[in-house]
């Protein structure tokens, strides 16, 4: 059960050619697992999340399969996907603050959305109210217009709407990015609560804030320049990463108890390659301190320990 993604490849069509935003992504997600998806801007994490639910142009499906609970998702077919959206797979978008129609009362919008999906609003209403309690929103938000809510309230409202039909997979795209630290933690905990109460079976949390993932995610997948670099349990990623990019990424995070005036916090020198015409092989090669000849070929994403996958030639031999 859960989600299996095999060799998913998504490009962006642009006037100057295809941007290879996601190449040969292969990973799986257990039922009930909250997976953090992290990486720097432009690494393809949002592309991956969106392609699973709303593969709209300029995104272009190139290849690969997606199975959710054993059933193949027709992600490249915008029409056929409608059946799965919201019921089986849902999203809390990055733009959650603007995701509600400004000129409809929230309750009415929810009702119209559910009606369009042939769901009886009256039957769902008690559950909807229970979930409003869960995210600490008063019930009368249903009678308000989106402008009458604060940004954080809108965010939580969208969370409730998105998960109303108990999707099997929830994609949470940057849900904490626009919030202050206290609200970030609250929203993150609500997400866990939603999972625990079966409002969604499993979730992919897209973020570049690894500290949030440390609090809520069961596992973390790191992406780099359109390629999956490493996936393992949260503990493993934080404490014993194997991919050189993950190692450098984690070491660039500040730690408690270390005086950075004495030991300067370092970043990773260089920049990620342009994805319009990326270099062959491992895309981290140019910045990697341990790169060697073999890195001219794309490294396979192999399981070196149970549940620990790495795409690096240095590790592939140890598997």
């Amino acid at each position: 059960m859960g989600l299996q993604v095999e060799n998913l490849t998504i490009y962006y069509q642009t006037l100057s050619g295809d941007v290879r935003a996601l190449e040969n992504a292969t990973f799986s997600l257990e039922g009930g697992e909250i997976m953090g998806l992290a990486g720097e801007s432009g690494c393809g994490k949002t592309t991956l999340g969106h392609s699973l639910i709303f593969l709209a142009p300029p995104m272009k499906y190139v290849g690969g399969r997606v199975l959710l609970d054993g059933e193949e998702l027709p992600i490249q077919d915008m029409e056929k996907m409608n059946e799965f959206r919201f019921r089986d797979i849902s999203i809390i978008p990055q733009y959650a603050m603007n995701a509600l129609n400004p000129i409809r009362k929230i309750g009415r919008m929810t009702e119209e959305l559910l009606q369009a999906k042939k769901v009886d609003f009256k039957a769902v209403l008690p559950e909807l109210k229970r979930r409003l309690d869960l995210v600490k929103l008063p019930h009368d938000v249903l009678d308000l217009y989106p402008i009458e809510l604060s940004g954080g309230m809108k965010q939580r409202m969208v969370m409730v709407v998105s998960t109303l039909l108990d999707p099997s997979l929830l994609i949470a795209d940057e849900i904490t990015s626009a919030l202050d630290v206290a609200s970030q933690k609250a929203v993150a905990e609500m997400l866990v609560e939603f999972r625990d109460q079966d409002c969604c079976k499993s979730a992919i949390v897209i973020t570049h804030d690894i500290s949030i993932l440390y609090q809520i995610a069961d596992s973390i997948m790191i992406m780099y320049a359109g390629q999956v670099a490493e996936k393992a349990s949260t503990r493993t990623i934080i404490h014993s990463p194997r991919h050189p990019y993950t190692k450098l990424l984690i070491s660039s995070l500040p730690e408690i108890g270390v005086k950075y005036s004495e030991r300067q916090l370092t970043g990773i020198p260089g920049k990620p390659p342009l994805l319009l015409d990326p270099p062959p092989g491992c895309r981290f090669r140019d910045r990697c301190p341990i790169a060697f000849d073999k890195c001219l070929e794309v490294p396979p994403f192999v399981e070196i320990e149970k549940g620990h996958f790495v795409a690096c030639w240095k590790e592939a031999g140890n598997a």
Partner: peptide, 28 residues
């Protein structure tokens, strides 16, 4: 192209509803 239209689309709302919302905003 507004965010609320994309959100409805991502939740698999039929085109009819998306257009209806777009129309009532566009008519202002």
């Amino acid at each position: 192209e507004a965010d609320y239209s994309h959100f409805l689309g991502a939740l698999g709302a039929p085109k009819k509803l998306v257009r209806k919302y777009a129309f009532s905003n566009a008519v202002l």
